[in-house]
């Protein structure tokens, strides 16, 4: 009897399943529509669909506009990922390991690009780039700096989480056995937090790749990331070529989330960390 009740508690009712289904539809149907539009044979997606073809995929590979924007975003995301991972990992080690006065303020500052509205950060940087006179406005370097700012919190958050789970005694054991601080870190700590570091870098890549708000004030015809190119085309027309570009972006996101799920326990990816 009690066992039966216990089982009941763990089970979810019909309403929960139905509600979950609705939520999943809202989350995923737009994504499916993009895939259907990109693989559709007509000039635009109609009801009922006309049939499948790869003509828009081919058009994407021949399109100056979208292919170059895709490659631009990919290259930008790679550079941003490397810088963010290195700086973010170092900062995460510092703020989790060492007790310094004001360390909580420091942590809050490092995580705050997440809460600052993207358009406000974009404008603040744009204003600063122009008035500082360093020639950063509407340049590639200016864009990299903006993206590093918005991706760094993801690296710091993920690496800090894996550092919290790491037993510091292991590193101290290595130290007491005669290893130098750097060797102890490299040989003992780093292998243990490497999953967190890699997951953080995957997040940095994908956040930079999909970044729109802070890029808005930074882009020029020569510096156009994929989201900005898609936005300008979407303001006037629904181009299936844009949807074909979207299919490749969707594949990248799915791939990066599959990698992340292998690296870290997704169960912990809830609540405060994404704030």
């Amino acid at each position: 009897m009690a066992a039966k009740r216990l089982k009941e508690v763990g089970e979810v009712g019909f309403l929960v399943k139905f509600g979950s289904f609705i939520a999943l539809c809202i989350l995923l149907i737009p994504v499916f529509i993009v895939v259907l539009t990109g693989l559709n044979s007509g000039d635009h997606l109609t009801f009922p669909p006309e049939g499948f073809s790869t003509r828009w995929i081919v058009a994407f590979f021949q399109s100056e506009e979208f292919l170059s924007a895709f490659l631009f975003s990919f290259g930008l995301a790679l550079i941003v990922m490397v810088i963010s991972t290195i700086l973010g990992t170092m900062a995460a080690i510092f703020i989790t390991r060492f007790k310094f006065p004001g360390i909580n303020i420091l942590r809050a500052i490092f995580l705050s690009p997440l809460i600052l509205p993207g358009i406000v950060l974009g404008l603040a940087l744009y204003v600063f780039y122009i008035s500082s006179g360093w020639g950063l406005a509407r340049t590639y370097l200016g864009m990299i700096i903006a993206h590093v700012l918005v991706t760094m919190p993801y690296v710091i958050g993920t690496v800090s989480a894996s550092l919290f789970n790491f037993d510091v005694n292991l590193e101290q054991a290595a130290r007491s056995l005669g290893a130098s601080p750097l060797t102890a870190f490299r040989k003992v700590t780093l292998p243990n937090i490497s999953n967190g570091v890699m997951a953080g870098s995957v997040f940095a890549f994908i956040v930079s790749f999909g970044q729109f708000d802070v890029s808005l004030f930074m882009s020029t015809p020569n510096n156009t990331p994929l989201p900005i190119a898609l936005y300008w085309s979407l303001r006037y027309t629904f181009e299936p070529t844009a949807a074909a570009a979207g299919i490749f972006a969707i594949c990248l996101v799915i791939l990066s989330m599959l990698i992340t799920s292998r690296l870290v326990n997704l169960k912990k990816f809830s609540g405060v960390k994404f704030s």
Binding site: T37, G210, S256
Partner: peptide, 11 residues
């Protein structure tokens, strides 16, 4: 994580 512009294209 999917680019919001792409999700809006679908919508």
């Amino acid at each position: 994580q999917l680019d919001m512009v792409i999700r809006l294209f679908g919508l």
